[in-house]
Amino acid sequence: MALPSWTRTRLTKALNIKYPLISAPAAGHTNARLVADVSNYGGLGSLGAAMMPATTMRSTIRDIQNMTTQPFAVNLFCRTQEAPTDEELQHVNDADAQLNIIRKQLSLPTPDKYALRSPPLIDQVQVILEENVRVVSFTFGYLPDDLTQQLMKQGVYLMGTATSVQEAIFLAGPSQSQRKVDCVIAQGNEAGGHAGTFLSGSEEQLGTTDLARAVHDALRHRDDIAVVSAGGISSGHDAASYLKANLTDGAVMGTLFMLSTESSTPKAHRHALLTDTQPTKKSKGMTGRYARGIPNALMDKMDQLDQRTIPSYDIHSSHTKDIVAHATEGGLSDYMLLLSGDRHLEAAKYTENGTLSTTELLDKLVKDINTELA
């Protein structure tokens, strides 16, 4: 049976997949089963590997490959600046006083030594090359030119996150031979988790619809660059609105798949996604980078600080790591990273209160998109 016209996009043609439906990497919520199920269905599953050591990353990639022969993406965090020195990482900064108050409340000791949350990028890319991963997505900037060339030489399809037209144009490069990506992920303001902003002047994110239109128009002449939309896409109706008239080449959905029965979303986080009626907020205080989530005590207390005193992501995320890990392990939602898209209650309703499997969710999405675009 021939697939409907909405499935024929630059993304699906390049990767030879059925549907331009992408599960967001959502580090900590994705696992081999979820990724493989999305890809086996005909979409593009994504593994949030940014904080995985190389050995863990390799074993998880092999687990996925044992469950699917279809393409899947591995997601990485970039650095547009050098990683902090050990001296910079261990330095006690103004935000640490607030963190120590929180540790006292939770009966946690102050760590003797802080470690970066993300391992060296070069080690992760080496695993990707050795394991023949076919798709790499990334955020927080762009890959170094030497790594970009190694990946492209091996035929890896590259997807980079842009939160503005300026960033999208930068990633696309002035010509096909100078591009940094094969596909731009247009991440709108409604997106859950970290904003991928990396160019100064791009801090104010457009909404997903406006950004998708603006990036589409800016790259209209670039047939070699696909564009997919991310942010607040919480139903088949939402996805169809971006796939209509080829506004974008695909729809990225995070919170929807975080609520699938196969996800690794912790119980307390899942409960918040299903029931918390507070509007989501963007905060820099939790990790040192603006991230959208459901407000809790950690967000509120860190937002009381002068935001100018909060260190960079590499430093601050390493200093909050022990608190977040303790809270996540113990189900203490007040001190977890309750990252979420802006429409989590709509996602909860669409997933029938988190009771749908990944395959059932994809069935529902495809059926509703077909109805919308018939």
Results as ranks from 00 to 15, higher is better:
T197Y: 02
Q149P: 00
V156H: 09
I61Y: 03
N75D: 14
L337C: 11
A212V: 09
G196C: 01
Q81R: 13
I128S: 01
A50R: 02
L106F: 05
V127E: 02
G45W: 04
T30H: 00
R62W: 00
G42S: 03
A327N: 09
P266Q: 12
V227C: 13
R79Q: 11
M299F: 10
D249S: 14
S118L: 01
K282G: 10
G192W: 01
S235C: 10
I122W: 01
D145A: 10
L89D: 04
L106Y: 06
G354W: 02
P71L: 06
A291W: 01
V92G: 00
Q187T: 08
R343Q: 13
M302S: 03
G45D: 05
S164N: 09
T328F: 00
M159E: 01
L373R: 08
N40L: 06
K267A: 14
T55F: 14
T85E: 10
G354E: 01
V135I: 03
P84V: 09
S5T: 13
L273R: 07
Q124D: 02
R213V: 14
L143I: 05
G201V: 07
L219Q: 03
D249F: 07
R308K: 13
S312C: 14
T69W: 01
G45T: 03
T371I: 11
V136F: 11
Y313C: 06
V181T: 00
T197S: 11
V181N: 04
V181Q: 02
S283Q: 05
R33G: 00
R222C: 12
E352S: 04
N100R: 14
A230N: 13
E167T: 08
T371S: 11
Q98E: 15
D249R: 10
G28S: 07
Q176P: 11
H216W: 07
S263I: 11
L151P: 04
F72Q: 04
T148D: 06
E190Q: 08
S39E: 07
A327G: 10
R179I: 05
S264C: 10
G293F: 05
A83R: 15
